[in-house]
């Protein structure tokens, strides 16, 4: 049986300790803590510029494992270098790339795609708060439809972000590597996926939806509930792609998902939404699930 079935299976030792500069209730930091519990102390964390970079502010750091940060767009390339250097030095270690959605979906996509295609052995976790968060909530290709960001604000001519989010985990799955989505609401599911990504020879990708009180606009304590609702409304599908085959992890069945309204209502970034906007989002989600239930994964006819 797979590891991490119960909360009691989570190791006691924290490799990420208290005293970071992250916002109270930060889902990104929670994800890093959980990933390190799976990977253990023999892990090098490679970071892309973003919120998690500021965990370590010279001369203090809450981390107990080696950590390297170089720039925003090159976490995967840096990890490739480390992997080869480890080989040259005859060492075996886990490498965890921990990068935000902007650094993964957008500016770092080339280096990530390169590393996945080359099959460089690493675990790549994208902590996805659906915006460029550290700069203060700007639009990224992970931003969901109609969400307000400071660069896609609603106004008389705008309903917020006009575009749908990019389906990164599918794109990574198309590279032929292990790819999965997860949510901080379900730590054990996430940890099992990190464990799979670790065992996978090559790049294992996990897209982790994290609660971001600061940029989504909610009370820190509501965070877990909100990302849980993202799963329970079907707006954040949980799936895995292995050897090009997609498995849906959670599907209560047709008509059984909560309405997306439940996910949208608690967050300031969706406060401007009209009934029509919500209906449109609901339609998109329903259509996506219709595809999945019909055994299709892409919204193209050729596939």
């Amino acid at each position: 049986m797979a590891k991490y079935q119960k909360f009691k299976d989570i190791p006691d030792e924290n490799l990420l300790e208290g005293g970071s500069f992250s916002c109270a209730g930060c889902g990104g930091e929670l994800g890093l803590k959980l990933a390190l519990k799976v990977l253990g102390e023999d892990t090098i964390v490679v970071n892309a510029s973003g919120c998690m970079t500021l965990l370590s502010n010279w001369p203090t750091s809450p981390l107990k494992v080696p950590f390297i940060h170089s720039a925003i767009e090159n976490a995967a390339s840096t990890a490739t270098g480390i992997r080869h250097a480890l080989k040259a030095l005859n060492r075996e270690m886990n490498i965890l790339c921990y990068a935000g959605d902007g650094a993964t979906y957008d500016i770092g996509f080339q280096s990530l795609s390169g590393a996945a295609s080359r099959g460089d052995d690493m675990v790549y976790v994208c902590y996805n708060n659906s915006c460029f968060g550290n700069t203060g909530n700007q639009w990224s290709t992970a931003t969901p439809k109609f969400a307000r960001t400071t660069t896609s604000p609603p106004g008389s001519e705008s309903h917020g972000n006009a575009l749908s989010r990019k389906d990164m985990a599918k794109i990574m799955g198309a590279h032929g590597c292990y790819s999965a989505t997860a949510s901080t609401a379900l730590p054990l599911d996430f940890m099992r996926k990190v464990e799979k990504a670790r065992k996978y020879k090559g790049l294992g990708f996990v897209d982790l939806l994290v609660n971001c009180p600061t940029n989504w606009g909610f009370e820190p304590k509501e965070g877990i509930d909100i990302v849980m609702k993202a799963v329970f409304t079907g707006i954040w599908p949980l799936y895995e792609v292995e050897n090009g085959m997609m498995t849906i992890n959670y599907d209560p069945g047709p008509g059984k998902f909560q309405p997306v309204k439940n996910f949208l209502k608690g967050q300031q970034r969706f406060r401007h939404l009209t009934k029509k906007d919500i209906a449109e989002i609901q339609k998109d989600v329903d259509k996506e699930w219709e595809l999945y239930r019909g055994g299709k994964y892409w919204q193209t006819d050729e596939y």
Binding site: F7, I10, N14, G18, S22, L30, P187
Partner: peptide, 28 residues
């Protein structure tokens, strides 16, 4: 212990213990 984002809850002798030096009070 699983959900604390800030490493402020440690698991000592089978019991949770909140380290109030670091707890940011998110109440998760």
């Amino acid at each position: 212990f699983a959900y604390c984002p800030h490493g402020a809850i440690s698991w000592i002798n089978g019991k949770p213990k909140i380290d109030y030096t670091f707890c940011k009070g998110c109440l998760i």
